[in-house]
Amino acid sequence: MAADPRQPKPLTRQTLTEGLWKENPVFVMLLGLCPALAVSNTAINALAMGLASTFVLLGSSLLISLLRNFIPKQVRIASYIIIIATFVTAVDYIIHALSLELYNALGAFIQLIVVNCAILGRAEAFASKNPVRHSLVNGFGMGAGFTLALVMVGAVREILGFGSLFGVALFGEQFQTWAVFILPPGGFFVLSFWLVLFAVVAKRRAAKEVAHGS
């Protein structure tokens, strides 16, 4: 058998939280950018996309982790992709059954979850090497982090572009919507804005720590 160091690491809080913030798939790892920008023009679309991806992530993590000793190394990528594609097809039908409106808003991007590098990345880097419980917890954290990032981008775009949040109008009638933010360029700008903000905060914090240390 393959040399697989299967010393199950203890299930720590880190397993859950690393995906939320420290290794946030969108903001830090820059994975899964396509759906993060393409369907984040309103907070609701972003949330739905995030939840759909989380469902796929959880399902595929569970199955891949269960089968991790059964799948030979040579065919692992092909197997992972089949498993992920299965869950994506399922999500596609489920969303279609739940709400036609949501299904039309997300369009082909539900099916494109299958090529979301964040999910394949999790399968390869975590679920294939860890027991089921760990994989589920970690997948949940990553999914939550992905959803959080999407909603953060989607909320800013919706507030500026439509003057509303989750479909609720925030400003009066006279609010002049800023159409560029719901158009493609707005997606790039808002994500860039968040990254700059995080960099500034991180720098401040680092400076403070240095000051305390000396």
Partner: peptide, 9 residues
């Protein structure tokens, strides 16, 4: 293996 996974899927 692939066949089994494909069938499952």
């Amino acid at each position: 293996t692939l066949g089994l996974i494909a069938m499952l899927s």
